[in-house]
Structure formats: C-alpha cells, structure tokens
Design a protein around this nucleic acid. Structure first.
Ligand code: MN
Ligand code: MN
Ligand code: ZN
Ligand code: ZN
Lengths: 140, 140
DNA sequence: GTCCTGATTAGACAGAGTCCAGAGCTTCGT
DNA sequence: ACGAAGCTCTGGACTCTGTCTAATCAGGAC
C-alpha cells in the first residue's frame, strides 16, 4: 500500500491487481478498511459499510474479509479472545495492545530484533513471528 | 509450580495458598489442567473432568477457569481465533504455534531478548510481552 | 433478448462463552 | 440438632462471532 488517496477508483485497481473482481460491495468494504486505516473488527466494518447507502450483508462482509486475507490484501490480528481484528497494514509489524481500551497500535518491525529463540522442531519452517506488547495505563 | 506430584491433596493445598476454596469440582479441574501439563481449551477440560465420574457443568468449568486466571494460577493464550487455550505454566514464556495442527509449545523466556521496541505511549506501562512464532511443516 | 458464471443475500446454523434463577453444601450461632 | 446465611454448582437460556446453504441477482458473451 504505497501512499495514495483511497478513492473507489484507486481501490478497484488495487483489487484487480490482486486478481479480485472489484464488485461494488468489495470496493465499499475495501474503502471502509483502507480509508479509516485502523484495526477494525468484522462488526465495525459491517456497520461502516452500511452507514452509507450500500446495504451489504454480513455474509458478504465475512466472505470478502476472508478473500482479502487469502489474497494478502489485509492481515488478521488475534489478540482479543472474542473477535478478530483486520489490519490494513501488511508491512511486517507488531502491536501494542491496550488491555483497557482494546486499542491496537502498530510497531514497525524493521528495528526489532528477537534473539535467543530455540531451533525449530525438525522439518518445520517459520511462517511469521508476532509480538504483542500488552500495555495499560500506569495510574491506579 | 515447582516439581511435585499433582495429587488431589497437593492441589487442594495449592488452591488454599492462593485463597481459593478447594471444592471438589475445583480440585478436579485443577487436576485436569496440571496433571496433563499441556495447553487445553475449556472444552477439552470439560471433557477430561467428566471422563471420570465427577459430572461438572460447563458453567462451573468456565467460572473456575476465570477464577484460576484471576488468582494467576494459570494463564490464557490467545492464538486461535475460535477458542482460548489455558496454560498451566505461569513462568514467563512464549510459544511456538503449529498452524497446521494447532499445537502449542513453550519457549522459555529467559534466553529471549527483544530489542528496538519504541518507547511506550506516555503514562502507559508494559503488562507483558507475548511472542508467538507461527510454524508449519516444511513439506508442501 | 438468453445463457452462464460468479457474487450477494437472508436466514438457519454451530460453537464459545456468559448469565440467571433455583437448588445444594457448609459453616456458624444457638 | 435446627435454621439462617453465604458460597458454590447447575441446567438451560441467551449473546455473539462466524459459517453454510439455497435462492436470487448482476453482468458479460453471444
Ligand atoms: Mn474470558
Ligand atoms: Mn477466520
Ligand atoms: Zn497492525
Ligand atoms: Zn505455554
């Protein structure tokens, strides 16, 4: 995702480049995710998309999110036991997780080094390393 | 949890030491978690406890797991979007997560160093750092 | 226009987890 | 021993996230 205005036309092009047929609903969902560039739940995205006219169904939102995941247009963040967060940022990065508010903040992975990891079990390959720094307000 | 046989008597003592009234059900649940020292879901624990006689209800299993969490007798691991894993190991540690099988393996935190983390937002304190290394079988 | 294919939809469904109101236990005072 | 009080436990209803299905819809090729 290089710097660009997220117009619906631009997003249609982005979807096409990933081999995704840019339907009206898919463009609206992409718009919801990328214009508001935050970590959102399926529920929030459904609400955002339907605040405008569109009327997109829950099934389509889930189908589309899973399609976007598969095509690596977005990422999922597993940190809240009750729901998945969808992440428009696909660059390698980690997260601060505010356990009071549920807020997620990105941490660029470029400067991070993790040392001391044991060797992988035989025949296994690393798929990714996720670091979650749980934080909370210092005041009692 | 220092090395000890996890007899029901020992476990009753452990619960008492944490200020937990050691009822029959709580002891059975503790026994299921600590004797099989693996990462288990609530569902698995419910099944384990009821494979013997006991007949413990789902509500009691969840209540007890949340009580054990609160008293820091166990830990939760958030890694599968569909269920929480409960971890008898409360020493600082991280996890390998086999994305094919769902298997979790502990990584002792003593040798791990993470460098390059940005400063925390003002007024925030770190509550913990969780590292999840997602792995999968190398063979296609 | 018809035909074909893929996308969307409502609503049923499944699973994890919580809540509640009633019943069971235990402890304590008398 | 009895009863009251306070935990604890329980079935079952309920909520919420997410999936599935069968029907409908939209759009391109012809
Ligand atoms: Mn919980
Ligand atoms: Mn999913
Ligand atoms: Zn992120
Ligand atoms: Zn563990």
């Amino acid at each position: 995702m290089p710097e660009m205005k997220f117009t619906r036309d631009n997003l249609a092009e982005v979807l096409r480049n990933r081999g995704i047929n840019p339907t009206h609903q898919r463009i609206e969902i992409a718009y919801a995710i990328f214009s508001r560039c935050e970590h959102s739940s399926a529920d929030q995205i459904l609400a955002l998309v339907n605040d405008r006219a569109s009327e997109t169904s829950k099934a389509t939102v889930y189908n589309t999110l899973n399609l976007f995941l598969e095509k690596k247009l977005i990422r999922e963040v597993i940190v809240d036991p009750s729901k998945v967060f969808y992440d428009p940022n696909t660059d390698p990065h980690h997260h601060f997780y505010n356990t009071d508010t549920g807020e997620l903040t990105d941490i660029d992975a470029r400067d991070i080094r993790v040392t001391g990891l044991p060797p992988l079990p035989h025949g296994m390959a690393t798929e990714g390393v996720d670091i979650i720094v749980r934080i909370r307000s210092k005041a009692a």
